[in-house]
Write a protein that binds this DNA or RNA. Structure first.
Lengths: 224, 224
DNA sequence: CAGCGTATGGCACTGAGTGTCAGCGGTAAA
DNA sequence: TTTACCGCTGACACTCAGTGCCATACGCTG
């Protein structure tokens, strides 16, 4: 029933557009009653994002399960990858939906509210983990926003290429940027033979832009 | 007319709630025709955010005017402060609206779309400025999202305190965190007697978390 | 005073979303 | 087999947001 409604809806959305399709049109094509549509989807917009509710639940349970891990920033990055995986499971569907949401302002707004719920889930996780730090909630909000922005940047670039290319690699790269900006340590698996007692020395002119200094440190630490 | 509609709308929203107030109620109280409401506000939600369109235009012109400045991240932070200034101009109105949007999911969604337009304006500015860098658009999106998140974190904490306290200082602190994370250099006005040729030496154990290294550098550079 | 553009109000209409109830199916108990 | 019950579905009526259309009134200019 759900699937039949989604299929009918997308067929009509692609034929004549989202706003030119009424709920009556959808239920007529699917051969079900109008009332049943709103039983499965609380609004017309929801039929465009039929799997986000489940994905959000997955993310919540994932974060709850990894409550006592260290490296919380890495954890939320992994949580963000769950969303990418959902998109990658149905590339053609995801690309069609992307083109739809890009055109229709109402769908963009709805997508924003969905993304906001993901971001809140990540921020809430980080807030608990950062409870000790000064400015913990600030850092939690900012990092969550940065992770979501990086994820979406990579996701959209993958969607623009019609689902060609390696989505995971793109997202990994984008999240790597966020991790480096917000201080995730080196990977747990250290190459054998490398001594943890190694030191690096950075000499920086006072007044140099911090990001340039950070880039130097990254290079020195053989990151990226 | 606009003001009369906004006043009537907020009076009713506070009395009986947003969803329990119909547009007919508003226009009846304001003593105008129903059609006129939708001439001034394209939707019922718009009456809750009557000044954001102007503020968005202000931000756009501000960014356009500062197209050839250096330190684009600082520029974007200053642009975000324009939004705070708008909120601070009418503290009581802003606090009332905050309580309203916190309760009503529909208004939250609408606010998200407004915030999204601010974020896009910032990101677009940064994209142009970062056109040369590798991952320029990624950095632009992430930094814009971080700036908006920091701004909103401070703004909300100010709104929660009923508009008491120093909003500017709170936002300055929050944006300072973002600037330090994304590498804004020291302030242009350097204290006299301090030589720009000074150097700092950082010794770091290989494998140490990067954020700890960054924190050390910040301290060494007398930032924050 | 006449002409005109603009702002307003009234009216009817579409379409999303909701409450309610009746029907229809399967299932368990008598 | 019959009967009572429960969950799912469809049909109808209703509210309300938002739009198109047109008549009207106001202010300004000639």
């Amino acid at each position: 029933m759900r699937d039949a409604l989604v299929a009918a809806a997308f067929q009509l959305f692609l034929e004549r557009g989202y706003e030119q399709t009424t709920v009556d049109d959808i239920v007529a094509l699917a051969g079900v009653g109008r009332r049943s549509f709103f039983r499965y989807f609380p609004s017309k917009e929801d039929v465009v994002f039929p799997d986000h509710e489940r994905c959000l639940a997955d993310m919540t349970t994932y974060l709850a399960a990894s409550a006592d891990e260290d490296e919380p920033v890495r954890r939320v990055c992994d949580a963000a990858r769950l969303v990418l995986r959902m998109y990658a499971e149905n590339p053609t569907f995801s690309v069609q939906r992307y083109r739809l949401t890009k055109k229709v302002p109402g769908l963009r707004a709805y997508e924003l509210s969905v993304v906001w719920r993901y971001e809140r889930a990540l921020a809430e996780y980080l807030r608990v983990r950062f409870a000790g730090r000064p400015d913990g909630t600030l850092q939690a909000d900012v990092i969550a926003a940065a992770v979501v922005a990086a994820h979406n940047n990579a996701l959209r670039s993958w969607l623009r290429s019609d689902g060609q290319g390696d989505a995971s690699a793109t997202v990994d790269h984008a999240l790597g940027y966020v991790q480096s900006a917000f201080g995730v340590g080196v990977p747990a698996g250290r190459p054998v033979g490398e001594q943890p007692e190694d030191v690096v020395v950075v000499v920086s002119r006072r007044g140099a832009p911090l990001w340039r200094v950070v880039r130097e440190i990254e290079t020195a630490l053989d990151r990226d």
